[in-house]
Design a protein around this nucleic acid. Structure first.
Lengths: 338, 338
DNA sequence: ATCCTCCGTGTAATCGATTCCACAAGGAGG
DNA sequence: CCTCCTTGTGGAATCGATTACACGGAGGAT
């Protein structure tokens, strides 16, 4: 592959001049510029980004470590991050942690070794030593969706409290009283926060959240299945299952179906994170939708601010409830029914 | 960030010795090795991958350019590719083309600029000049899922012919005679192949595939919606719609629902590419499943073979039909029904 | 005509690693 | 005791870019 030296030789100038042309430095004569451009063209020359990065100490690359690519929520987030980054002239390298802390560390380390300019992380756990060190180091870093409490890193996320309250109101209006939740890992903020929000909202209606009604999940479909099995085996099974992410909702649906029960007649279901398929499931699933596009854009903006020496603030965007049919119909919702 | 020089100074040896320790070169005294390791530890030194790549001319990175991250089929593929690559000591940089040729070119160029060791591509179109040049160049390259005819690059893909034949047999047995397809872009191999396979299978039953029954889609949900609208507006609408990918099936479902029709009673639906959600849609959707895990592994293996100077062959794996309820029940399928 | 600027250009240092080559020390063999 | 080989080590070149610095020539001001 042709290097800058080849171009210089072809154009009859020095490498410095070639470099100046390539970086549109002002002081190059039109004649020289034309000859360099012609040489670049004829050799099909492309600058070596590796060499450039070594010299300039910047890669124009952002790292994004997400918890699970197979989760549509995260792929939507990844897509909007890449889009926003590209608009600002950055590339994105995605690392998929698969909800496994050691895999997360692997990706963080690899990204750091490649000297990415900044790191976007949705932490899988409470923070490995590596993650904590990185946060303390000078590497620009921003948390997105999930974060690690007590760490001084900007956070870009959606706040679901309001939407969870709306959901509980909706469920209460329909007449549901026994509400259960499949929680995410307590080590993640989204895992514990959603339970908190749910508990608080229930309290407003004087409803309890017994331990039996809190299923321990890990944001994967299988755990949703197992938690649901346990709920259904209870002497007093819940009326409603609220899954803290869409994959666990999928698992819950599997389990409910395996028991020959129907949604919402036998048991109602709601989920955190809305996805296009929820419109077409049987029945369509009531969910809390996050503004993934805005989240991705805000996260990239915050990270680039940090990289360029500005001092970004944390951003919290609202999530919103999307009511469908998986929880039944409240008296006020009714139209077609008598 | 500490460099190899700092480590050398700290350990009281030369940089050459540090490098030898790091690359486990045999001729280093135990004493020197111990001192270097101690220095590495105390400085928290990590080798700069950028500098290393420049010198060794290899990045241990693979590029993967896929057509659409939001398509669950491709995210599953991406995941298995990353997993297989990691097992062989490679990282993967994913580029999402969003089914847009110019975006695909952007990613190919960026990846090439970064001097990735090899490129895995699922081409969005028939081949831009850049793509063709790259294929001819010495950069190791493998096509996955889709390919570009006439280009001498190994291809790893699933063959759906057999499964499409099974699908048509299934539909015929149920009694469906008017079968339509929502095709992908003709410029993609998967776009045209699936139509061919469908047409050939229909021919075996003496069924025609009129032009009216071929909808032009682009593998995105919206195009599935539009094609379905058109089918439903026909004087003789089809009995069955076969969508050439899962997103267009989603769009078709939207359109069918908007018309107040029911699946499979009013119209049947089947899709290429199976995804977990198809089990829970209303009704569960009959689909052709590809072995994404094997596909990803085989693709990485082929690419690494190429990188290491071996001469890999193209790989074709079978896809298989998964019958669910979206096409109705054939007489032989019946159990619970009379 | 002389001096000063400014412009365009080239030389060479530099980024952080790897690796070829030279060399010193120590052990083995004659 | 001398030579030869092995082993461990360091010096320096190198990868492909960017950029500080120096320098020659043209043009303007006096």
């Amino acid at each position: 592959m042709a290097s800058i030296k080849d171009v210089a030789a072809e154009a009859g100038v020095s490498v410095a001049t070639v470099s100046r042309v390539l970086n549109s430095h002002p002081s190059v004569s039109p004649a020289a510029r034309a000859r360099v451009l012609a040489a670049v063209e004829s050799l099909g020359y492309r600058p070596n980004a590796v060499a450039r990065s070594l010299r300039t100490d910047q890669t124009r690359t952002l790292g994004l470590v997400i918890s699970d690519v197979l989760n549509p929520y995260f792929t939507a987030l990844a897509r909007s991050v890449e889009e926003a980054a590209r608009a600002l002239g950055y590339s994105v390298i995605i690392g998929n942690a698969d909800e496994r802390p050691e895999l997360q560390d692997h990706h963080v380390r690899t990204l750091l070794d490649r000297r990415i300019d900044g790191l976007l992380v949705s932490p899988t756990d409470g923070g490995s030593p590596l993650m904590l060190d990185t946060a303390r180091s000078s590497t620009p870093m921003v948390f997105v969706d999930r974060w690690i409490p007590g760490v001084d890193v900007p956070v870009v996320r959606a706040d679901g409290r309001e939407a969870v309250r709306d959901l509980v109101a909706h469920l209460h209006a329909i007449g549901h009283r026994r509400l259960a939740i499949i929680a995410g890992p307590a080590a993640t903020t989204t895992g514990s926060e959603r339970v908190e929000a749910f508990r608080d909202a229930l309290a407003e209606y004087g409803l309890p959240l017994p331990d039996d009604y809190i299923g321990q999940g890990d944001f994967q479909a299988d755990s949703g299945r197992r938690a649901t099995e346990r709920f259904l085996a209870l002497p007093e099974p819940p009326h409603v299952i609220f899954a803290a992410d869409n994959l666990m909702a999928l698992g819950a649906l599997d389990a409910i179906r395996a028991h020959g029960l129907r949604v919402p007649d036998d048991i109602a279901l709601a989920a955190f994170d809305d996805i296009p398929w929820f419109v077409h499931t049987d029945p369509p699933i009531t969910a809390i939708a996050q503004p993934t596009g805005d989240l991705g854009r805000a996260a990239v903006q915050a990270l680039v601010d940090l990289i360029e020496g500005r001092r970004p603030r944390s951003v919290t965007l609202p999530a919103r409830l999307v009511v469908r049919r998986s929880c039944g119909e409240s008296p006020t919702d009714q139209r077609s029914t008598t």
